[in-house]
Design a protein around this nucleic acid. Structure first.
Length: 832
RNA sequence: GCGGGCGUGGCGGAAUUGGCAGACGCGCCGGACUUAGGAUCCGGUGACUUCGGUCGUAAGGGUUCAACUCCCUUCGUCCGCACCA
């Protein structure tokens, strides 16, 4: 008799044993195929939340299953440990960011270990440690040497609340991704990574990722925003400057009736100098610049503009058109100036109507000719060119290309591909990050810190204050330095790097975490990487996942590794949500959050029911990519199931100990044959669910059915050989989901660890049924069921159906139109 | 506005290739055991029904012998994008 199921005791026991045995230590082993399972590492906020528990439970099942299935599995964990909250703790509580971070990490490791996750902790990385950020800095220098890191003054996103700038990817609807406060524009000299150099490949290689959700690929596609068109210039009457414009609609070029400039366009000043409306334009420009990004980029906001007084010349037909400054042109995209064709562009149409500007129709609808006077909208569909000189009569798609050819031939313009993607702004005016390893010499200018001087360590003599300058600038010991080139007086860059840089390469470091010569060894990374299965939240669809793809391509070009993409397969898990009653008394479901008071603490659940129950519930309640509805009753149901497993193994244990692994299955009675059939069907289904679909919820439900089938024998004797076969298979299949209870029960019955066992194979012969139940349908409606020999052919099946009394009864007096027989499934008799 | 996902019992969900809708779990109902049951075990549980059946996968239509599954229209919901020329 085995004791009562007591998760608190057995979980602690096995966690200690696994740790003492180094059970999950991984090394290169060329005798097996490798498999790299990875979950997005957490920010060390101090406590695990249910989203983490879900993420890591999924990853652990994948890792444990693949191990049992014969793979050499790498499954590491670490911490994305630089970031603002640590610094905020310093500002508000006077704690050192490092102390705050390391004590949080300590607590989270304890919590992770209490979940029974199969990590190789020897490979843990913490991005805030000098032996990691040394290589983050080294990689910055690599990017710099490859011309991919540069400093420039630009209008950048500034979050006042966080006291730092943000990359475009980190601005969501004009708000800071972290604190949600409104982002402002500021002109600052900042460091950028030239991700735009890889825009084309980042877009094209999405096709190499069949294992990624389409949703994520579409989001990246939109973000990169490739468009094809051409760039050409307008001459300005009475000025030597030209206005370059970018358009995707060269087919409408003869319909240009005005040219619009963004408020920031440098030509504006020159064009208005001495013009009668100079002051009015200046005021308009200043007003536009003072608007927040939210207001400026909203598609709904009113399109406003003002005439500069200057005119441009359309290079294709010499037409003189007015130049306006408007609030709807994005300066950072294209050339910051646009040719306006009101007849064929919605915005230009609205604008021209509002300000009484000319409209010229240049594309006509061949089915139903358009009358300019009757137009209430721009005509943006396909058509045939009119009013376009030598191109009249040409289809507009063809004309796009023909007109670009013409522009190129006459040296007026060129074909051009444009991207919405901008370079990645990586400077942060914060302390708790990797210092940018650059020195500014009074004489020699910008210099990289020599490689042998890395890491540039974070100083401790800093003041933490909110402000526009990094706290590093308050450190004397940090700031002042010698120029590495001339030895003269110099000072350090005081900005740190965006923490997304730290997380753009950590999955390579896991392959070689203790290397002190390089970020990682090329052979080791080529062995383990790319990650076979990456698991995390959809919120990183662009941010982390795009940056990581960029890094991988740069490191490939630097010959540090030999593949193109970092993550072969990506799984995006849904959120954990929970219903609560709002102030109006309505029951609503929402993401767990402190402010709503619907948070369930993982630690409490694990204390009460054990990690196995928590894991089982989370995996069973919902498919991984969907939101998971937390249910306290559901958790109890999972706990109940584990008790049921415990009891039935206990009941079977005497028989199991007497059983032999090899036996003659013909000695089994009918009920035993049925149980054995259920077992092998279960093995087949669970294997397919884990191997092909990551359908953990259905795998678990199938295991529940097996346990239910075993209960048929709770009060009657069972063949010991079958008991052994079923019992051991059940424990092996449960092992990836609920590692502690599976190990505990295994240890009562067998030698060694259940987690070192090979995955179970199903016996196809055991699944074969002699008889199957087929359905009799009359006109598609189920009218009877009948048992027939399995695999009965169509003709015999059809006859068997027609012979049924029920069929005869319903057919009499009617004509049989057709009989459809599907072996092992059904017979449908169509009558009139 | 554009693009995409989703919509199945009281609830979470299953149905993998067009072939028995509702597996499994929660909840609920009944029974057994019991001094007791918020333990355990067994059974029932889509709706309506004249007990023959009829209806039923957001709504409406279509294709098919057969549709949760394919096609069209509409509604709801969630997500992404949105002055990018």
């Amino acid at each position: 008799m085995i004791d009562k199921y007591s998760p608190q005791e057995i979980e602690k026991k096995w966690q200690e044993k696994w740790e003492a045995d180094n059970a999950y230590k991984t090394d290169i082993d060329n005798s097996k195929p490798k498999y790299y399972a990875l979950e997005m590492f957490p920010y060390p906020s101090g406590n695990l939340h249910m989203g983490h528990v879900r993420n890591y439970s999924i990853g652990d099942v994948v890792a444990r299953y693949k191990t049992m299935a014969g793979y050499n599995v790498l499954h590491p964990m670490g911490f994305d440990a630089f970031g603002m909250p640590a610094e905020n703790a310093a500002i508000s509580h006077g704690v050192k960011p490092s102390d705050w971070t390391f004590s949080n990490i300590k607590n989270m490791i304890r919590q992770l270990k209490s979940m029974g996750l199969a990590y190789d902790w020897d490979r843990e990385v913490e991005t805030c440690k000098a032996d990691y950020y040394r290589w983050t800095q080294w990689l910055f220098e690599l990017f710099y040497k490859r011309g991919l890191a540069y400093k420039k003054e630009a209008s950048v996103n500034w979050c006042d609340n966080c006291g730092t700038v943000l990359a475009n990817e980190q601005v969501i609807d004009g708000h800071c991704w972290r604190c949600d406060s409104e982002v402002q524009k500021k002109k600052l000299a900042q460091w950028f990574f030239k991700i735009t150099d890889y825009a084309d490949e980042l877009l094209a290689d999405l096709d190499k990722l069949p294992g990624w959700p389409n949703r994520v690929k579409t989001m990246q596609e939109n973000w990169i925003g490739r468009s094809e068109g051409c760039e050409f210039s307008f001459e300005v009457e009475g000025h030597s400057e030209k206005i370059p414009v970018y358009t995707t609609r060269p087919d409408t070029i003869f319909g240009v009736t005005f040219v619009v400039l963004a408020a920031e366009h440098p030509l504006v000043d020159k064009l208005i100098a001495g013009q009668p409306n100079e002051e009015a334009v200046r005021k308009f420009v200043n007003d536009a610049k003072n608007l927040s990004d939210v207001e400026r980029t909203s598609a709904e906001s009113e399109k406003l503009g003002i005439f500069t007084g200057a005119y441009a010349i359309n290079p294709v037909n010499g037409k003189k058109v007015p130049i306006w400054v408007v609030n709807y042109v994005v300066y950072e995209y294209g050339t910051g100036a646009v040719m306006a064709v009101p007849a064929h562009d919605e915005r230009d149409f609205m604008f021209a109507t509002k300000y009484n500007l000319e409209k010229i129709l240049v594309i006509d609808n061949p089915e139903q000719p358009i009358k300019l006077e009757e137009m209430t909208n721009a005509y943006i569909d396909a058509g045939v060119l009119i009013n376009s000189g030598e191109f009249n009569g040409m289809g507009n798609e063809k004309a796009k290309s023909a007109i670009i050819d013409w522009l190129e031939k006459h040296n007026i313009g060129t074909r051009k591909v444009n991207y919405r993607l901008r370079d990645w702004l990586i400077s942060r005016q914060r302390y708790w990050g990797a210092p940018i390893p650059v020195i500014y010499c009074d004489k020699c200018g910008e210099q990289l810190v020599p490689e042998e001087d890395l890491p540039v360590l974070l100083p401790e003599d800093v003041e933490f204050k909110q402000g526009a300058l990094s706290p590093l600038s308050t450190s004397k010991s940090f700031n002042e330095c010698k120029c590495p080139k001339c030895g003269g007086h110099a000072h350090r860059e005081t900005d740190t790097m965006d923490t997304f840089i730290c997380s753009s390469w950590y999955y390579f470091r896991y392959a070689d975490p203790h290397n002190d010569k390089l970020p990682f060894d090329r052979d080791k990374v080529n062995y383990w990487n790319p990650v076979d299965q990456y698991i995390g939240g959809i919120e990183h669809a662009i941010l982390h996942l795009l940056y990581s793809r960029f890094f991988t391509k740069v490191l490939r070009d630097a010959k540090m590794l030999d593949f193109d993409e970092p993550f072969t397969n990506l799984m995006t898990q849904g959120m954990v949500i929970k219903g609560y009653t709002d102030k109006d008394g309505n029951y609503v479901k929402a993401k767990m959050s402190k402010s709503l008071g619907n948070v369930v603490s993982p630690e409490e659940i694990i204390e009460k029911y054990g990690a196995d129950t928590a894991r089982l519930f989370i995996l069973f309640a919902s498919p991984v990519d969907r939101d998971l509805d937390w249910s306290d009753e559901g958790v109890q149901g999972s706990f109940r199931f584990l008790n049921r497993v415990w009891r039935i193994i206990d009941i079977f244990s005497e028989a199991i100990k007497k059983g032999n692994t090899k036996y003659d299955v013909s000695t089994l009675n009918d009920e035993e044959v049925a149980l054995r059939r259920t077992l092998h069907k279960t093995i087949k289904k669970v294997t397919e669910d884990l191997r092909d679909r990551f359908a953990f919820n259905t795998a678990i439900s199938t295991l529940m059915e097996l346990v239910n089938a075993m209960h048929v024998f709770q009060n009657k004797p069972i063949n010991p050989n079958l008991a052994l076969e079923v019992g051991s298979a059940l424990l092996k299949m449960l092992a990836p989901f609920v590692p502690h209870i599976a190990e505990e029960l295994w240890s009562h019955l067998f030698e060694g660890s259940v987690h070192k066992q090979s995955w179970v194979e199903f016996d196809a012969a055991a699944i074969v049924e002699d008889e199957v139940e087929v359905v009799l349908q009359i006109n598609g409606k189920v009218r009877d069921r009948v048992k027939v020999p399995a695999n009965l052919d169509k003709a015999a099946l059809e006859q068997a159906a027609l012979d049924l009394p029920r069929a005869r009864e319903l057919i009499t007096g009617k004509t049989i139109v057709k009989v459809i027989a599907v072996p092992n499934k059904l017979v449908n008799i169509v009558v009139k």
